[in-house]
């Protein structure tokens, strides 16, 4: 049976959501989500790396011996990471400074090696492309969601370039949300809430099926 390319794309948002369902890639998720803009650029970088790595792993899957697949994956992942690093350093030097070591650390982001191993090494190029794009976009959506919550509570508003919403903070911002403790607790609570919602949905669907 041939898998639907569209399904491989869309599953990254809910069913195989990297942060909330597969629970991988925690470090960058917490480190860069202090503002929506940071989260967006980090997400974009991950999408590029993921698609690049998935496509090449899939292309080379028939000629790569099983024993040396991990070193091959690492090189196929490190290459796009270096590209992202160089491009970002040249065109977005400020963002490169803010994201800091978490740009080169995309290399060891478990999401990417996990997709290479679990998906791209076993599926055709087009599906792997869709998978990389989908999982990457799901990851980006998560980063934006988490950073929106943290930025809003932590600074009282969301700032993208010169756009501010709301214009002036409505409450005294809780600086803790931008610090590590706030990040951990925020993500933990968010996961718990989503788990409750998903459990409720499943129960409802079961009840309807009966």
């Amino acid at each position: 049976m041939k898998r639907s390319v569209f399904y491989d794309f869309i599953k990254g948002f809910i069913e195989e959501n990297p942060t909330f369902r597969l629970v991988i890639g925690m470090c960058p998720t917490l480190a860069v989500t202090t503002s929506v803009v940071n989260g967006f650029w980090m997400g974009l970088s991950v999408i590029f790396v993921l698609v690049f790595a998935n496509v090449f792993v899939s292309l080379l899957r028939k000629v790569t011996p099983d024993e040396i697949r991990l070193p091959v994956f690492v090189i196929l992942i490190a290459t796009p990471v270096v590209i992202v690093e160089l491009v970002m350093k040249a065109y977005l030097p400020a963002m490169y400074e803010i994201l800091g070591i978490f740009v080169p650390l995309i290399v060891v982001n478990c999401i990417i090696i996990a997709r290479a191993e679990a998906f791209a090494f076993k599926h055709p190029v087009l599906n792997s492309f869709a998978d990389g794009l989908g999982i990457g976009s799901g990851f980006t959506a998560n980063l934006i969601l988490i950073s929106a919550i943290r930025e809003f509570l932590g600074t009282g508003q969301i700032t993208v370039g010169s756009f501010r919403f709301p214009q002036a903070p409505l409450f005294e911002p809780a600086a803790v949300m931008l610090t590590p403790p706030g990040g951990f607790i925020c993500l933990g609570l968010l996961m718990a809430i989503l788990n409750v919602l998903l459990a409720r949905r499943e129960r409802k669907m079961k009840a309807q099926a009966v």
């Binding site: 925690m26 403790p181 706030g182 951990f184 607790i185 933990g188 609570l189 788990n195 459990a199």
Partner: peptide, 21 residues
């Protein structure tokens, strides 16, 4: 079940990190 694993671990890490402040 909804708290098992990561959610509870992250919240505890947050509390520990508060202490380490």
């Amino acid at each position: 079940k909804t708290l098992e694993g990561f959610p509870l671990a992250l919240i505890s890490t947050g509390l520990m990190s508060l202490a380490f402040l």
